[in-house]
Amino acid sequence: MKILTVVGNRPQFVKSAPLGEAFREAGLEEVVVHTGQHWDDELSRVFFEELGLAEPAHRLDLRTPDLHAMTAPIRAVIDAESPDLVLVLGDTNSTLAGARAAAAEGVPIAHVEAGLRSGDLSMPEERARMEVDTLAALLLCPDERSAATLRDEGVPGRTAVVGDVMADATLRFAPIARERVPPPHSPGTYVVATVHREANVRPERLRRIVQGLSQLDETVVLPAHPRTASVLETELIPLGENVELREPLGYLAFASAASQARVIATDSGGLQKEAYWYRVPCVTMRPSTEWVDTVVVGANLLVDDDPDALVAAVGSARFPAEAPPLYGDGHAAGRIASVLGSL
Protein backbone atom coordinates (compact mmCIF):
# COMPACT_ATOMS: atom_id res chain seq x y z
CA MET A 1 0.00 0.00 0.00
CA LYS A 2 1.17 3.51 -0.83
CA ILE A 3 0.17 6.20 1.67
CA LEU A 4 0.48 9.91 1.00
CA THR A 5 0.69 11.79 4.33
CA VAL A 6 -0.06 15.52 4.38
CA VAL A 7 1.65 17.61 7.09
CA GLY A 8 2.03 21.33 7.46
CA ASN A 9 2.36 22.47 11.06
CA ARG A 10 4.34 21.81 14.20
CA PRO A 11 2.12 19.16 15.88
CA GLN A 12 1.80 17.25 12.62
CA PHE A 13 5.57 16.98 12.27
CA VAL A 14 5.77 15.48 15.77
CA LYS A 15 2.98 12.98 15.07
CA SER A 16 4.57 11.93 11.79
CA ALA A 17 7.70 10.62 13.55
CA PRO A 18 6.15 7.53 15.21
CA LEU A 19 3.80 7.05 12.26
CA GLY A 20 6.62 6.95 9.74
CA GLU A 21 8.52 4.41 11.81
CA ALA A 22 5.44 2.22 12.23
CA PHE A 23 4.69 2.34 8.51
CA ARG A 24 8.24 1.26 7.66
CA GLU A 25 8.08 -1.63 10.12
CA ALA A 26 4.76 -2.74 8.60
CA GLY A 27 6.15 -2.60 5.07
CA LEU A 28 3.90 0.28 4.01
CA GLU A 29 5.21 2.84 1.54
CA GLU A 30 4.79 6.41 2.74
CA VAL A 31 5.19 9.63 0.76
CA VAL A 32 5.17 12.78 2.91
CA VAL A 33 3.96 16.15 1.62
CA HIS A 34 4.86 19.27 3.62
CA THR A 35 2.51 22.10 2.65
CA GLY A 36 4.57 24.89 4.21
CA GLN A 37 1.74 26.12 6.45
CA HIS A 38 4.48 26.53 9.06
CA TRP A 39 7.66 27.59 7.33
CA ASP A 40 9.70 29.38 10.01
CA ASP A 41 12.75 27.22 10.79
CA GLU A 42 11.85 26.94 14.49
CA LEU A 43 8.32 25.88 13.57
CA SER A 44 9.27 23.58 10.71
CA ARG A 45 12.77 22.55 9.68
CA VAL A 46 14.06 22.13 13.24
CA PHE A 47 11.56 19.29 13.74
CA PHE A 48 13.03 17.27 10.91
CA GLU A 49 16.51 17.84 12.30
CA GLU A 50 15.75 17.15 15.98
CA LEU A 51 13.39 14.22 15.53
CA GLY A 52 15.36 12.54 12.77
CA LEU A 53 12.44 12.72 10.33
CA ALA A 54 13.05 11.86 6.72
CA GLU A 55 12.86 14.85 4.42
CA PRO A 56 9.41 15.16 2.86
CA ALA A 57 9.24 13.81 -0.67
CA HIS A 58 7.33 16.96 -1.59
CA ARG A 59 8.08 20.25 0.16
CA LEU A 60 5.54 22.64 -1.35
CA ASP A 61 6.98 25.65 0.52
CA LEU A 62 3.72 27.57 0.11
CA ARG A 63 4.41 29.73 3.17
CA THR A 64 0.76 30.38 3.81
CA PRO A 65 -2.09 28.96 5.89
CA ASP A 66 -4.51 29.78 3.07
CA LEU A 67 -6.72 26.78 2.44
CA HIS A 68 -7.38 27.41 -1.22
CA ALA A 69 -3.71 28.06 -1.97
CA MET A 70 -2.84 24.60 -0.61
CA THR A 71 -5.53 22.50 -2.26
CA ALA A 72 -4.49 22.67 -5.92
CA PRO A 73 -0.78 21.89 -5.29
CA ILE A 74 -1.74 18.91 -3.09
CA ARG A 75 -4.03 17.68 -5.86
CA ALA A 76 -1.08 17.86 -8.26
CA VAL A 77 1.04 15.73 -5.94
CA ILE A 78 -1.75 13.18 -5.53
CA ASP A 79 -2.10 13.00 -9.29
CA ALA A 80 1.65 12.48 -9.71
CA GLU A 81 2.05 9.89 -6.92
CA SER A 82 -1.19 7.89 -7.39
CA PRO A 83 -1.40 6.80 -3.73
CA ASP A 84 -3.82 4.18 -2.47
CA LEU A 85 -4.74 6.43 0.47
CA VAL A 86 -4.25 10.02 1.65
CA LEU A 87 -3.66 10.35 5.40
CA VAL A 88 -4.38 13.65 7.15
CA LEU A 89 -3.84 14.54 10.80
CA GLY A 90 -5.71 16.80 13.18
CA ASP A 91 -7.70 19.90 12.30
CA THR A 92 -5.55 22.48 10.52
CA ASN A 93 -5.94 24.08 7.11
CA SER A 94 -3.35 21.60 5.83
CA THR A 95 -5.61 18.79 7.10
CA LEU A 96 -8.66 20.16 5.34
CA ALA A 97 -6.79 21.01 2.15
CA GLY A 98 -5.37 17.48 2.02
CA ALA A 99 -8.81 15.96 2.51
CA ARG A 100 -10.44 18.16 -0.11
CA ALA A 101 -7.66 17.46 -2.58
CA ALA A 102 -7.95 13.70 -2.05
CA ALA A 103 -11.73 13.82 -2.40
CA ALA A 104 -11.41 15.77 -5.64
CA GLU A 105 -8.97 13.16 -6.97
CA GLY A 106 -11.16 10.27 -5.86
CA VAL A 107 -8.59 8.85 -3.41
CA PRO A 108 -9.73 7.41 -0.04
CA ILE A 109 -8.92 9.49 3.03
CA ALA A 110 -7.80 8.37 6.50
CA HIS A 111 -8.22 10.92 9.29
CA VAL A 112 -6.04 10.70 12.40
CA GLU A 113 -7.78 12.25 15.46
CA ALA A 114 -11.23 11.70 13.97
CA GLY A 115 -14.36 12.40 16.01
CA LEU A 116 -13.02 15.15 18.26
CA ARG A 117 -15.50 17.92 19.00
CA SER A 118 -15.34 21.04 21.16
CA GLY A 119 -18.93 22.03 20.43
CA ASP A 120 -17.77 25.50 19.36
CA LEU A 121 -18.56 26.11 15.70
CA SER A 122 -16.94 29.54 15.84
CA MET A 123 -13.59 27.73 15.80
CA PRO A 124 -12.22 27.06 12.30
CA GLU A 125 -10.66 23.89 13.69
CA GLU A 126 -14.07 22.55 14.72
CA ARG A 127 -15.49 23.13 11.26
CA ALA A 128 -12.42 21.52 9.70
CA ARG A 129 -12.74 18.41 11.90
CA MET A 130 -16.37 17.96 10.97
CA GLU A 131 -15.81 18.36 7.24
CA VAL A 132 -12.80 16.04 7.14
CA ASP A 133 -14.72 13.38 9.07
CA THR A 134 -17.54 13.46 6.53
CA LEU A 135 -15.03 13.01 3.69
CA ALA A 136 -12.90 10.26 5.28
CA ALA A 137 -13.27 6.60 4.44
CA LEU A 138 -11.28 5.62 7.54
CA LEU A 139 -11.75 7.43 10.85
CA LEU A 140 -8.90 6.80 13.28
CA CYS A 141 -10.20 7.85 16.71
CA PRO A 142 -8.15 8.57 19.85
CA ASP A 143 -10.81 7.23 22.22
CA GLU A 144 -14.26 5.71 22.56
CA ARG A 145 -15.86 9.12 23.14
CA SER A 146 -14.75 10.23 19.66
CA ALA A 147 -16.01 7.03 18.06
CA ALA A 148 -19.38 7.48 19.78
CA THR A 149 -19.57 11.05 18.49
CA LEU A 150 -19.11 9.83 14.93
CA ARG A 151 -21.81 7.19 15.39
CA ASP A 152 -24.19 9.79 16.78
CA GLU A 153 -23.50 12.06 13.80
CA GLY A 154 -24.05 9.24 11.33
CA VAL A 155 -20.65 9.71 9.70
CA PRO A 156 -20.38 7.06 6.98
CA GLY A 157 -16.69 6.07 7.13
CA ARG A 158 -15.23 3.05 8.92
CA THR A 159 -14.23 3.82 12.52
CA ALA A 160 -11.28 2.41 14.46
CA VAL A 161 -10.23 3.39 18.01
CA VAL A 162 -6.43 3.43 17.95
CA GLY A 163 -5.36 5.86 20.69
CA ASP A 164 -3.55 9.14 20.18
CA VAL A 165 -0.35 9.13 18.13
CA MET A 166 0.80 12.26 19.96
CA ALA A 167 1.06 10.09 23.08
CA ASP A 168 3.53 7.88 21.21
CA ALA A 169 5.69 10.91 20.41
CA THR A 170 5.40 12.48 23.86
CA LEU A 171 6.31 9.33 25.77
CA ARG A 172 9.24 8.75 23.43
CA PHE A 173 10.71 12.22 23.16
CA ALA A 174 10.05 13.87 26.56
CA PRO A 175 12.75 11.87 28.43
CA ILE A 176 15.21 12.63 25.62
CA ALA A 177 14.31 16.32 25.80
CA ARG A 178 14.86 16.50 29.56
CA GLU A 179 18.19 14.75 29.21
CA ARG A 180 19.48 16.97 26.42
CA VAL A 181 18.06 20.41 27.23
CA PRO A 182 17.97 22.01 30.68
CA PRO A 183 14.71 23.76 31.65
CA PRO A 184 14.60 27.57 31.52
CA HIS A 185 14.37 27.73 35.34
CA SER A 186 14.39 25.27 38.22
CA PRO A 187 11.77 22.57 37.65
CA GLY A 188 8.36 23.41 39.08
CA THR A 189 9.07 27.12 39.56
CA TYR A 190 7.64 28.66 36.38
CA VAL A 191 4.66 28.71 34.02
CA VAL A 192 4.94 27.90 30.31
CA ALA A 193 2.44 29.83 28.19
CA THR A 194 1.55 29.59 24.51
CA VAL A 195 -0.93 31.77 22.62
CA HIS A 196 -1.37 31.33 18.89
CA ARG A 197 -4.96 30.65 17.84
CA GLU A 198 -6.50 33.12 15.42
CA ALA A 199 -9.18 34.24 17.89
CA ASN A 200 -6.65 34.81 20.67
CA VAL A 201 -4.26 36.98 18.68
CA ARG A 202 -6.96 39.52 17.98
CA PRO A 203 -5.74 42.60 19.90
CA GLU A 204 -8.46 42.82 22.55
CA ARG A 205 -8.38 39.13 23.47
CA LEU A 206 -4.59 39.00 23.42
CA ARG A 207 -4.44 42.09 25.62
CA ARG A 208 -6.69 40.44 28.23
CA ILE A 209 -4.74 37.18 28.17
CA VAL A 210 -1.42 38.99 28.55
CA GLN A 211 -2.92 41.06 31.37
CA GLY A 212 -3.68 37.85 33.23
CA LEU A 213 -0.24 36.37 32.59
CA SER A 214 1.38 39.63 33.73
CA GLN A 215 -0.51 39.53 37.05
CA LEU A 216 0.87 36.14 38.04
CA ASP A 217 3.31 36.11 40.92
CA GLU A 218 5.63 33.65 39.19
CA THR A 219 7.80 33.62 36.08
CA VAL A 220 6.01 33.02 32.79
CA VAL A 221 8.02 31.65 29.86
CA LEU A 222 6.21 32.72 26.69
CA PRO A 223 7.70 31.36 23.44
CA ALA A 224 5.83 33.52 20.95
CA HIS A 225 4.43 32.29 17.66
CA PRO A 226 5.47 34.82 14.96
CA ARG A 227 1.85 35.93 14.56
CA THR A 228 1.54 36.53 18.31
CA ALA A 229 4.82 38.43 18.50
CA SER A 230 3.74 40.65 15.64
CA VAL A 231 0.47 41.64 17.34
CA LEU A 232 2.23 42.26 20.66
CA GLU A 233 4.63 44.61 18.90
CA THR A 234 2.24 46.45 16.59
CA GLU A 235 -0.45 46.91 19.25
CA LEU A 236 2.07 47.92 21.94
CA ILE A 237 0.66 45.36 24.37
CA PRO A 238 2.71 45.61 27.57
CA LEU A 239 4.16 42.53 29.26
CA GLY A 240 4.69 42.28 33.00
CA GLU A 241 8.24 41.96 34.31
CA ASN A 242 7.46 38.34 35.15
CA VAL A 243 6.76 37.44 31.50
CA GLU A 244 9.77 36.28 29.49
CA LEU A 245 8.98 36.71 25.79
CA ARG A 246 11.05 34.25 23.78
CA GLU A 247 11.51 33.16 20.21
CA PRO A 248 9.76 29.89 19.27
CA LEU A 249 11.62 26.98 20.85
CA GLY A 250 12.77 23.86 19.08
CA TYR A 251 10.75 20.77 19.86
CA LEU A 252 13.17 19.26 22.38
CA ALA A 253 13.73 22.57 24.18
CA PHE A 254 9.99 23.16 24.40
CA ALA A 255 9.27 19.62 25.59
CA SER A 256 11.90 20.01 28.30
CA ALA A 257 10.48 23.36 29.42
CA ALA A 258 6.82 22.28 29.34
CA SER A 259 7.30 18.92 31.03
CA GLN A 260 9.12 20.57 33.96
CA ALA A 261 6.81 23.58 34.39
CA ARG A 262 4.57 24.01 37.41
CA VAL A 263 1.63 24.94 35.17
CA ILE A 264 1.02 25.13 31.42
CA ALA A 265 -1.27 27.95 30.20
CA THR A 266 -2.22 27.53 26.56
CA ASP A 267 -4.75 27.77 23.77
CA SER A 268 -3.23 24.80 21.95
CA GLY A 269 -5.22 21.60 21.61
CA GLY A 270 -2.16 19.38 21.43
CA LEU A 271 -0.43 20.97 24.41
CA GLN A 272 -3.45 20.27 26.62
CA LYS A 273 -2.86 16.57 26.00
CA GLU A 274 0.88 16.82 26.39
CA ALA A 275 0.40 18.56 29.74
CA TYR A 276 -1.74 15.63 30.83
CA TRP A 277 0.88 13.09 29.83
CA TYR A 278 3.57 15.19 31.53
CA ARG A 279 1.32 15.27 34.63
CA VAL A 280 1.51 19.07 34.64
CA PRO A 281 -1.74 20.94 35.36
CA CYS A 282 -3.12 22.92 32.44
CA VAL A 283 -5.07 26.16 32.18
CA THR A 284 -6.71 26.59 28.77
CA MET A 285 -7.35 30.10 27.48
CA ARG A 286 -10.35 29.13 25.38
CA PRO A 287 -14.08 28.85 26.10
CA SER A 288 -14.15 25.17 25.06
CA THR A 289 -11.93 22.20 24.35
CA GLU A 290 -12.07 19.09 22.21
CA TRP A 291 -10.15 17.23 24.95
CA VAL A 292 -13.11 17.14 27.30
CA ASP A 293 -11.80 14.35 29.52
CA THR A 294 -8.86 16.44 30.74
CA VAL A 295 -11.38 18.92 32.16
CA VAL A 296 -13.66 16.23 33.58
CA VAL A 297 -10.85 14.69 35.65
CA GLY A 298 -9.68 18.09 36.94
CA ALA A 299 -6.34 18.31 35.13
CA ASN A 300 -7.39 21.17 32.85
CA LEU A 301 -9.30 24.39 33.63
CA LEU A 302 -11.03 26.56 31.01
CA VAL A 303 -10.74 30.32 31.61
CA ASP A 304 -11.37 31.82 28.13
CA ASP A 305 -9.73 35.30 28.05
CA ASP A 306 -10.73 36.39 31.57
CA PRO A 307 -7.55 37.73 33.24
CA ASP A 308 -8.86 37.28 36.80
CA ALA A 309 -9.99 33.72 36.10
CA LEU A 310 -6.59 33.01 34.56
CA VAL A 311 -4.77 34.25 37.66
CA ALA A 312 -7.01 32.25 39.99
CA ALA A 313 -6.77 29.07 37.91
CA VAL A 314 -2.98 29.16 37.61
CA GLY A 315 -2.63 29.88 41.31
CA SER A 316 -4.78 26.91 42.32
CA ALA A 317 -3.77 24.48 39.58
CA ARG A 318 -2.73 21.04 40.81
CA PHE A 319 -2.52 17.82 38.85
CA PRO A 320 -4.96 15.26 40.29
CA ALA A 321 -3.18 12.42 42.05
CA GLU A 322 -5.69 9.82 40.82
CA ALA A 323 -5.79 10.97 37.19
CA PRO A 324 -6.56 7.98 34.95
CA PRO A 325 -4.72 7.16 31.71
CA LEU A 326 -6.23 9.04 28.77
CA TYR A 327 -5.90 8.87 25.00
CA GLY A 328 -3.85 5.74 24.57
CA ASP A 329 -0.81 3.89 25.75
CA GLY A 330 1.91 4.99 23.35
CA HIS A 331 1.19 2.37 20.68
CA ALA A 332 -1.28 4.23 18.47
CA ALA A 333 1.06 4.42 15.47
CA GLY A 334 1.43 0.64 15.40
CA ARG A 335 -2.33 0.20 15.55
CA ILE A 336 -2.80 2.67 12.70
CA ALA A 337 -0.24 0.80 10.61
CA SER A 338 -2.04 -2.48 11.33
CA VAL A 339 -5.41 -1.03 10.30
CA LEU A 340 -3.98 0.38 7.08
CA GLY A 341 -2.10 -2.82 6.32
CA SER A 342 -5.33 -4.80 6.58
CA LEU A 343 -7.16 -2.75 3.94
Rank of each mutant, 00 (worst) to 15 (best):
V88C: 04
S82N: 12
L96A: 05
A128L: 01
V107T: 15
E125G: 12
P156K: 08
L135W: 11
S118M: 12
P73R: 03
R75P: 04
A69F: 02
P108W: 13
S82F: 05
G157V: 13
P83Q: 04
P73G: 10
E125V: 12
R145W: 13
V155F: 07
S118D: 05
P108M: 09
V88H: 03
G163V: 07
E113Y: 01
L135N: 02
S94V: 06
A114G: 10
A102D: 04
R158A: 15
P142F: 07
V86G: 04
V132I: 14
T159I: 15
A76M: 07
A97G: 15
G90M: 10
A160E: 15
E105G: 08
V77C: 03
V86L: 03
L116M: 14
T95P: 02
D84Q: 08
A148L: 05
V132T: 10
E81C: 08
S82T: 15
G115T: 03
R117Y: 03
M70W: 11
R127I: 15
A97C: 13
A72D: 09
D91A: 06
A80Q: 14
G154Y: 07
T149L: 06
A76V: 04
P73C: 10
V155S: 13
V86W: 02
V77D: 02
P142M: 11
I78K: 05
D120A: 11
L85H: 06
V161M: 07
A147I: 09
L116Y: 11
S118G: 04
G119P: 15
A114W: 11
E153F: 05
A72R: 08
I109C: 08
R127M: 14
P83C: 10
A99E: 06
L135Q: 03
V112C: 01
R127P: 00
R117D: 03
L121P: 12
A101K: 02
S146C: 14
V77Q: 00
P156Y: 05
R145M: 14
H111I: 06
A114R: 03
R117E: 01
V132E: 01
H111V: 06
G115Q: 01
P73F: 09
A101Q: 01
R117H: 01
S82G: 09
V88A: 05
A97M: 15
L116C: 06
A76Q: 15
P83V: 12
L138D: 03
L140S: 02
A110H: 02
V112W: 12
L85S: 07
G119I: 09
S122Y: 08
D120F: 09
A80Y: 12
D91V: 13
E153P: 00
T134K: 00
G98V: 02
H111T: 07
T71M: 13
G106Q: 13
S122P: 01
E81W: 00
T159C: 07
D79S: 15
